[in-house]
Every structure is written in C-alpha cells, then in structure tokens.
Simulated assay, not measured.
Amino acid sequence: MERNINFFKRGIYYIQFLIIRFLEKIFMLLPEKTRFKIGESVAVLAFKLVGEVRNITILNLKLAFPEKTNEEIKRLGIESCKTMSRAFFVNMWLDKYLENDDNFKIADEELLNEAIKDGPVVFGAMHFGNMEAPVKLANRFPIVTVAKDRTNPYINDLVIKNRTRFNITLLQKNKTTSRELIKCAKDGMTPILLTDHRDSNGTDIKFFGEETTAPTGVASIALKYERPLYLMYCILKEDNTTEVHIKKVPKSEDTSLSFKENVQKTVQNMFNEMEIVMREYPEQWMWSYDRWKLYSKYKKGLLSPELMNFVKTFK
C-alpha cells in the first residue's frame, strides 16, 4: 500500500473501502443469477445515462462496423456493456465461481495441452468476456501477469489479495515492471498479459483499418526467448459460464529485419487475430474504452462532420 497519501485522503479512501465491503456482503447474500442480472441492469443504465460511456462505445462500434445501422450499434453497445458488467461483478466471488468446474470450459483443450507440453509459452489476452478467468489455469502451469494500481490503496490491496489466492505471480505496473516480467519469464513462468489496449510507448499498428499503437511485451518475450505466442480470450456465455479459447499467433522471424521490426510485425499479426475474434463475438469486447481516441477527438470537435452528427443525433 502506498505510504505517501495524506491523512485526510487516506481516511476518505478507507471510508470508501468500508462502504464497498458492506455493500458487497449484502450483495453476496443474493442468488448468483440475481447478482449477474443486477450487473446487467447496471450496465444498461450506464449506457443510457452516462454520456461518455455511450459515446465512446458507439464511436468505436461505428469505426469497426460502419455497415451496421444505428439500432444494431445500439444493441451491440448494450450487450457489450452487459458482458463487461457481468465480468466485473463476478470478481466479487471469482474464487467460488472458478471452484465450480462447470463454470470453466477450455474449448481448445488439445491445443492448450500441445502449447504447454514443451515448456512455458506466451499468451496475449484481451478485455474480452470474463477476462479474469484464466487465473484458474495456474493449477496447470505457473502464471505471471501485470495489473495497474487502483487509486484507492485499500481496494488495490484487496484486488491483489483476491487475484494472488489463485497462486499467480502478480506484478504491479511501475518503472521496474518490464525487468521483473523478463525475470519471471526467464524463471520459466508463462506470461498472460492484457495486450489489446493503446500504448503510446508501444509500436504502430492498424486495428480495424485505423492507425493506432499497441504494447509490445508479449511479442518481445515470445521472440527473445523463442517461445510460441498465443492469443487467449474468454467468452462469458448467456448462462454465465466461461469458455476459454486460444489461437496460435504467427511470429515474424525474418532474418533480414531488425528485432524491433519483427516485434512490430508480430504485434500486427496478433491484432489481426484479435480483429477476427471481435468480429465474431462483438458483444464480448470492451467497446467503452477510448481505444482509438475517437471520443477525445469528438470533445475537441476534430471528428468528421459525419461522425460528429452521428454522435449528436444517436438515440
């Protein structure tokens, strides 16, 4: 926990923590199906009432699926928010949820066994479906992952405790994370890293035809240590069970290119695979994240007149 927080702010954070813990205990008295339903209801309200959430979502969907009608975009936006909300809510009882083997199915069991039989590999994961569920795989091979600190240090400590109970190595994102991650990889651990976010320090790629940036961590480790690279994604199904999928990502190992160029091409290959998955299951991805900075441009009036009008007239 951070120590450089003033007394007043620490007190506010602790009160927030106590309120959340109290509400969580009340919430956990409800049947599991009811908890998921509440999560969906919260998502629908957020989409309808929180302009930023709705506008980011519809702009991203319009970029990815320009052929869809406004009604289709609205439906996908709501379904995506519902999926993300269910995935967020289940973190409150993730240990109990994953103890039930009926809740966790690996769709590509043979491919996973083939991937890990010869030693550690590298998995790039997505903000997709029940994205925390792969921690269950720690009972099969040693996992290392990275997470950002929460602003509230008490909640941050609770999240760390909940995640590490699955016997994973959790690194908190800071200036030394890259070195720590490489050490864990060299020690034989398998990185599973969320890697579909924007990263200004990463490499340039195209994603749904739009130029953007992406992190290079998983590609760099896979190339440097000659490990297979896979995309992992977790579908949160309508019955609230989780189905885990993996796809092998082709690495660029062109000897005529520099290491940096091969990393860039490998990252692009991974995002090409992500795009295929997202087109198949668009309701599973977190479209409410300003991935392409479209919402930032909208607020500054920098979008095309067509997109500006699309947002302003969207119902």
Rank of each mutant, 00 (worst) to 15 (best):
E261S: 04
K9T: 15
D157G: 09
Y230A: 04
N60D: 10
V44S: 02
K161M: 13
R54K: 15
P66L: 13
S256R: 06
D239S: 02
V159C: 01
P250G: 08
T203Y: 03
S178A: 15
K224Y: 04
K68P: 01
I221E: 07
R10L: 10
I26W: 05
W292N: 01
V50R: 08
K237A: 04
E238T: 04
T266E: 03
W93C: 09
I73Q: 00
E211M: 14
F166Y: 00
S304A: 07
N240P: 04
T177W: 03
R54G: 04
F141R: 00
Q16T: 12
E52I: 04
E273L: 13
N6Q: 02
V249P: 06
V249L: 01
F65G: 05
W285C: 02
K117H: 08
T255L: 14
I116P: 02
V244S: 00
N201I: 02
G39H: 03
N103S: 07
E99Y: 13
F7R: 15
Y298T: 04
F166R: 02
L63A: 11
F271Y: 14
P120W: 01
T83C: 02
Y13T: 08
M308Y: 00
K148W: 11
G77E: 09
V277N: 01
N162K: 15
P31W: 07
I182Y: 09
K315S: 04
F166K: 06
G39I: 00
K315E: 11
L257E: 11
A64M: 01
S200W: 08
S178G: 14
F207N: 02
I58A: 01
H245I: 03
F89E: 09
S85T: 04
T164W: 09
P282H: 04
R165P: 08
T195G: 15
L61F: 07
C81L: 15
L194W: 05
A115N: 05
E280C: 02
S252A: 11
L23E: 09
F123D: 02
T216M: 14
V53Y: 13
T34P: 01
E238M: 01
Q172M: 14
G202D: 10
F104L: 13
Y233G: 03
D199H: 06
N240M: 02
F123S: 06
D187L: 11
G51W: 10
I235Y: 03
L257T: 05
E114H: 09
Y298W: 11
M189W: 03
I78T: 12
G209F: 14
L171Q: 07
A214K: 08
T69H: 09
F310Y: 12
L257R: 06
T313C: 09
P191S: 09
K74R: 15
L94P: 07
N113F: 12
R279Q: 10
Y289A: 01
F259H: 12
K117C: 06
K186H: 05
L194G: 10
E306V: 08
T212S: 15
L158V: 08
L98E: 05
N174Q: 13
W285F: 09
N70R: 15
N91H: 15
R35C: 03
Q284D: 00
L231C: 01
Y230K: 12
P66I: 12
L45Q: 10
P305E: 14
K117A: 09
E52W: 00
L59P: 07
N70P: 14
G129E: 01
L18R: 14
L303R: 04
